[in-house]
Design a protein around this nucleic acid. Sequence first.
DNA 1: CCAAGGATCTCCCAAAAGGGGTAGGGCACC
DNA 2: GGTGCCCTACCCCTTTTGGGAGATCCTTGG
Lengths: 212, 212
Amino acid sequence: MTAIRDTETIRILTVDDHQLLREGIAAVLESQEDMTIVAQASNGREAVESFRRLRPDVTLMDLRMPDMSGIEAITVIRHEFPNARIIVLTTYAGDAQAAAALKAGAAGYLLKNLVRKELIETIRAVHSGKRRIPPEIATEIAEHVADDELTDREIEVLRRVAAGKSNKLIAAELDISEGTVKTHMKSILPKLDASDRTHAVMIALKRGILDL
Amino acid sequence: MTAIRDTETIRILTVDDHQLLREGIAAVLESQEDMTIVAQASNGREAVESFRRLRPDVTLMDLRMPDMSGIEAITVIRHEFPNARIIVLTTYAGDAQAAAALKAGAAGYLLKNLVRKELIETIRAVHSGKRRIPPEIATEIAEHVADDELTDREIEVLRRVAAGKSNKLIAAELDISEGTVKTHMKSILPKLDASDRTHAVMIALKRGILDL
DNA sequence: CCAAGGATCTCCCAAAAGGGGTAGGGCACC
DNA sequence: GGTGCCCTACCCCTTTTGGGAGATCCTTGG
């Protein structure tokens, strides 16, 4: 039995700020003989530290976490270790979030309402170098790839709109003219296919462009 | 050992649409000798059925679920079994949600980012007839008890505002005059302490008065 | 060097939203 | 039989928003 080679065991890092969920993942994975959890982290910063130290074969990463978000953590890890295999495991937060995670280098994107089998199957697939995006998420992302994305400035404006600020106030905060804020709004509305600023904010929330 | 009385074992029902999280709860609770999970449900409807059949001592209930929400399930269960001890276990969804759950009869309100100890301690406390509301949630709720609540009609209007509809369109949909919609808005904004309709929608989302 | 995209600014105009006040009708609770 | 609350409706007026068009400046990338 001691002859089983290490390379046959998938070494896993789990990252989520919900201890209960990590326990659930652990319970599921530890029933698999070829999987072992080598560390757990509860935010992005800890995830990066653990990854550097342990170089897990597969990382399960939530996106919304205090301290450092999953997207940031994925970006840092993949920058240092381009071969890192990372699976996002989160509640759905919109196509923009999912697309950002994949752009940052995630190899899979799972929703937390999955069943054991999907989790295990995806870990094996990603470990062997494949990518795994569930069709419903792929579809959502595909629906918006052709869209014109909001620029950083436009998001900055929209974030303030969501805070209930008038164009005039936003202009003062950003130190630009009110006319320019209006120009940005005139660019934002058609990009999001929104009928007015309130609608634009709602769409941005649903798509994960803004956070609540 | 067979002399230990049944009444010393706390019989628990867990309700959550995330299988992984239920596994986590199970892993934590089954390490406790005096706790046993008698059933699991993945939505409100199943929760009500399971409760009727098994009469668990304590129920752990999520709020957002398909089919029937946790609030509805709590309402139904407590109507049939006024002594049912139910603990809400959810990600924070605003003071309005929490207040609604407590009004429906929940005895505790826990957040999913809790640690094992809190969960176990709360189950024991609630089982023995106590109520347990974490101070940060109690504070949030308390901050708004003095507020004038939105009426059903106002929420109906606000929901449509959130959908990006103009006062005129909302008036047509509700079959009232545009002036009346404006009257409702003039009532909504100060109640939510919002500067405009966009702000009102954001506040309603954060407080759990509206869903995304 | 030129093109493209982004950010900035201006002007004009119509539509929508917000703030003030007033008021009638219906319904439930004392 | 009031009192209070809600929904409804209207008035007037100001501010804000959204739509159309044009134009400059700067940076980035062939």
